[in-house]
Design a protein around this nucleic acid. Structure first.
Length: 891
RNA sequence: GGGCGCGUAGCUCAGCGGUAGAGCACUGCCUUCACACGGCAGGGGUCACAGGUUCAAACCCUGUCGCGCCCA
């Protein structure tokens, strides 16, 4: 591609230039320039699912990260955005299994583990670059050259080492506990993968005959099928209805088993019948009760097979039935025995697998657990001490709450796709944990070993992402340079998944928290505020939006709407508006180019195009815009330091459109016109070129494509914009006198325009004016800015005083401007206009007077506030007086 | 049941102690030599409600009402 300067086209086509620039940046290594002496700046991407595709939440998350990375790269930091994808165990395995079914191929079990895994790797190879391609469309300037994957060899080494070390430290162990079992997927799943749905169910009341034949105990349950596994009945110790039964036994119908009646505070007397069946193997609460009563002899009976059909532990009649069939059968059998007391409608929470959509079964199995409670303590301390900060800080509470109550973390999954657990079993059931089979074998010479078939929870490996991506467990230069990272940018909904686990493992294995800041953004919702979901059909595809409006417009929209974690209601109108903004800048650059304004410091003077130091401008408008740039840079720096992406975008929007385009370009048109002072024109072209360059740099983090294109269109450059230098606010000159003059000029022009419109003066009519009470400074300014005033306000000075007829009068500071409008102006309309202005000034004057007179204000308020009130009061008083005089002159 | 957050212009949202802001939408005018994806000007808010603190409250405190989310 040619980087030579060319004329800027009349139309701006985002798609063409986006593809061109992205390829160029990536090929030229611009995403990670060699900066060995610079301070590192590191962001670790929350790795997207390798077989997923980019949704609008990713677009937000990665836009924010890219803005941070590009900003810091422009600041000269050794910026690195570590990128890669997650193998996403369950999700990916499900996708592949579904594809096999769709294509009529043998299922997983039929084809066997080895062939199935080959199929998954094939699928990963085929579809795995979809999401990374989409990230590129967005403009994400990641370090692709070092892309990682949570199942690559290096990761496998890291995962194995972590597993073995935690095991050796006693922080990882095998245990038989209840897990959330997904009978459809045939695996344990995380608490976080369980969603509770409100279901209209029933509360069945059954009669359990007392052992001594003295009657029945009514037991209420929502899950009759688990009666077959009951090991006890519990009542509240303070429930007078049942105290006499505590310690007795009752006979479990259908099973004909005697079970104890125990007392436990967990039972609520006024819920159900006040007597709760205890099925330790199928209910989390019941399991806790069981553990609290070790002497009660409560049996733990696993009623189900892994697919949730009834197991051989049930009486013969129920074996092989599904959960649902068993429920119906149990109810019918109780009814037949006359032991069904009553059925009440009952709305309750039922756990469902968020991926499989089936009811989750609390299920007693052998699994591997991590002692999360122990690992959580340093992770909590890191945030308490401020070593890691949440932005906004309110999310710390969520983090604390979750880690404070964390349970042992079940890390084994009955899947094939994932890191296989490095544990081997001897024929007599002994378990050997080792980094390799050879090592395991060495510990048990001559014994046949069988490897644990299960794999690790995806989050077990994701937790290592911030350091394993940098080469850990090797002590690589990359690791020492880029770890810990600077900021993790993620949705608040993922604090439990990502943040907490990365903090726990990061601190345990590297002794440092993996990032000093966690920025949590909100969810992207549709324009009505509904959460987007495929089932609702209200999702928006970021790629479609990019096609329609350009990546820059989408990025800018997401940044502008991101205000510290609040959810974003995405309205396409907003994107359209920022597309218009991009077009505005494009046209401004086109205008600049047609006026001989180009890359600052290139061409004849050839300073090299760095454009850091502004030209030594003499004209107030040029000195003013340099000061405005300085102010803008400072505001942008402050916004970035505070992670205020909305403030960053808004500052740019206002500066580019409302300052640079609306005023600077308009005010300098006369200075560039034919016949204007040549030296001044040259100065103005230089200043405009410089200011435009700074705009491109400042806007680049948010709109990288458009700005890079214009950067090159405007002149020969020694380097791409992506590698330019961010302006230094402190070193830019600010001229208070020039600012005051231009502010005055803008106020004057605005006053005139406003009055003209109000009095229906035709826009084309050029009016004469005279001025009274003008200070020397104002007179000088009027003379110096005569051309701009004529052009933008369409008024020219006239000889002599105004006559007695119709006239338009306006006040700017101390001066009164009179525009005779004999026959044109409607006297009544002008009177109304002046009266309105007087009323406004008087209202403020009186309010200020009231405040100044009120007791306490002058001695209790801050001196600055008092001073400002006095100054404002004086100004409003004078304004009202001058307007009053003007009204009097109308006659 | 516990916790968090939100109610500011028609819409979407900033502002969080010193005279109410932005974008979009709306109204009027403008085929002005960068841009109609534009220019100029304008209308529109008792900042949910009720108390309190303060010289001063959209902003701090308490309560009420309405909405949302998370955890159990």
């Amino acid at each position: 591609m040619s980087l030579s300067t060319t004329l800027i086209d009349k139309t701006f086509d985002p798609s063409e230039l986006e593809a061109r620039w992205y390829a160029h940046w990536e090929a030229s290594g611009a995403f990670r320039p060699e900066r060995p002496d610079a301070r590192p700046y590191t962001i670790i991407i929350p790795p997207p699912n390798v077989t997923g595709s980019l949704h609008i939440g990713h677009a937000l998350d990665n836009t924010l990260q890219d803005i941070l990375i590009r900003y810091h790269r422009l600041l000269g930091r050794d910026a690195r955005w570590v990128v890669g994808t997650d193998h996403a165990g369950i999700a990916t395995q499900m996708v592949v299994e579904r594809r096999l079914a769709e294509h009529g191929q043998p299922d997983r079990k039929t084809m066997g583990r080895a062939r199935f895994l080959e199929t998954v790797w094939d699928w990963k190879a085929e579809s795995g670059d979809t999401i990374t391609r989409q990230l590129r469309r967005l403009g994400a300037s990641c370090d692709w050259a070092n892309e990682r994957f949570t199942m690559d060899d290096g990761f496998n080494t890291a995962v194995t080492k972590v597993f073995v070390q935690l095991f050796n430290e006693g922080l990882l162990y095998r245990d038989k506990r209840l897990v959330n079992w997904d009978p459809k997927l045939g695996t344990a799943i995380s608490d976080l993968e369980v969603e509770y749905r409100e279901i209209d169910g029933h509360m069945w009341h059954f009669r359990y005959p007392l052992e001594d034949g003295s009657g029945y105990l009514a037991v209420a349950t929502t899950r009759p099928e688990t009666i077959l596994g009951d090991g006890a009945v519990a009542v509240n110790p303070d429930d007078p209805r049942y105290t006499h039964l505590i310690g007795q036994r009752c006979r479990l119908p259908l099973v004909d088993r005697l079970i104890p009646i125990i007392a436990d505070g967990y039972v609520e007397a006024d819920f159900g019948s006040g007597a709760v069946k205890i099925t330790a193997a199928h209910d989390f609460n019941d399991f806790e009760v069981y553990k609290r009563h070790p002497d009660a002899g409560i049996p733990v009976i696993n009623l189900m097979n892994p697919d949730a059909t009834m197991s051989d532990a049930c009486p013969p009649d129920y074996r092989g039935l599904t959960r649902e069939e068993a429920r119906r059968q149990v109810i019918a059998d109780f009814d037949a025995l006359g032991l069904l007391d009553k059925i009440e409608p009952h709305r309750h929470q039922v756990p469902y697998g968020d991926r499989s959509g089936v009811v989750i079964e609390p299920y007693l199995t052998d699994q591997w657990y991590v002692d999360a409670h122990t690992l959580a303590q340093p992770a909590l301390e890191a945030v308490r001490s401020g070593a890691t900060k949440f932005v906004p800080a309110t999310w710390e509470k969520t983090y604390f709450n979750w880690l404070d109550n964390i349970q042992p973390w079940c890390v084994s999954r009955q899947l094939w796709w994932g890191h296989q657990i490095p544990a081997w079993y001897t024929p007599d059931g002994a378990c050997i944990v080792a980094e390799s089979e050879a090592e395991a074998q060495a510990k048990a010479p001559g014994v046949a070993l069988r490897r644990d078939e299960d794999v690790l929870d995806t989050w077990f490996s994701s937790a290592l992402w911030p350091f394993a991506t940098l080469g850990w467990p090797e002590n690589t230069p990359e690791l020492s340079r880029h770890y810990p990272g600077d900021v993790l940018v993620t949705g608040f909904d993922i604090i439990f998944f990502w943040v907490a686990r990365m903090m726990m493992q990061g601190i345990h294995f590297t002794e440092q928290p993996p990032f000093h800041t966690v920025y949590c953004h909100g969810l992207v919702r549709d324009a009505k505020g509904q959460k987007m979901s495929k089932s609702k059909g209200n999702t928006v595809d970021p790629l479609t939006l990019i096609d329609k409006y350009g990546a820059d417009a989408l990025r800018f929209t997401l940044a502008a709407m991101e205000s510290q974690g609040r959810d974003i209601k995405l309205d396409e109108k907003r994107i359209e508006g920022y597309r218009n903004f991009a077009t505005k800048l494009w046209n401004a650059a086109r205008f600049a180019q047609s006026n001989g304004i180009g890359a600052y410091g290139t061409g004849a003077n050839g300073i090299g195009g760095q454009g850091i130091t502004p030209p030594a401008a003499t004209h107030p408008v040029n000195r003013w815009i340099i000061g405005e740039v300085a102010q803008t840079v400072a505001a942008l720096d402050a916004a970035m330091a505070a992670y205020r992406f909305d403030g960053f975008a808004d500052t740019l929007y206002q500066f580019v459109w409302s300052r640079f385009c609306d005023w600077y370009l308009e005010l300098t048109k006369p200075l560039l016109a034919e016949g204007a002072d040549a030296a001044l024109a040259e100065e103005t072209r230089a200043t405009a070129g410089w200011a435009l360059d700074q705009i491109l740099v400042m806007l680049h983090p948010a709109m990288p494509f458009l700005t890079e294109e214009l950067w090159h269109k405007l002149g020969e450059r020694p380097h791409d914009l992506i590698l330019a230098r961010w302006p230094d606010a402190a070193s830019l000159p600010r001229d208070a006198a020039a600012s005051a003059e231009i502010d005055w000029l803008i106020a004057l022009i605005s006053e005139v325009r406003s009055a003209r419109t109000e009095l229906n003066v035709p826009p084309s009519a050029k009016l004469g004016y005279s001025v009274d009470g003008a200070s020397e400074e104002t007179s000088a300014r009027l003379a110096a800015n005569a051309t701009a005033i004529e052009r933008l306000a369409r008024i020219i000075p006239m000889e002599g005083a105004a006559g007695q007829g119709g006239r338009l009068q306006l006040i700017v500071n101390e001066a009164t401007f009179t525009l005779p409008l004999e026959g044109i102006v409607d006297l009544a309309a002008e009177r109304t206009r002046l009266e309105k202005a007087i009323a406004a000034a008087a209202k403020e004057r009186d309010a200020l007077a009231g405040r100044l007179a009120s007791p306490g204000f002058t001695d209790k308020a801050k001196p600055e506030a008092v001073e400002k009130a006095r100054a404002d009061h004086a100004a409003r008083t004078a304004e009202a007086e001058r307007l009053g005089a003007a009204l009097a002159r109308l006659g």
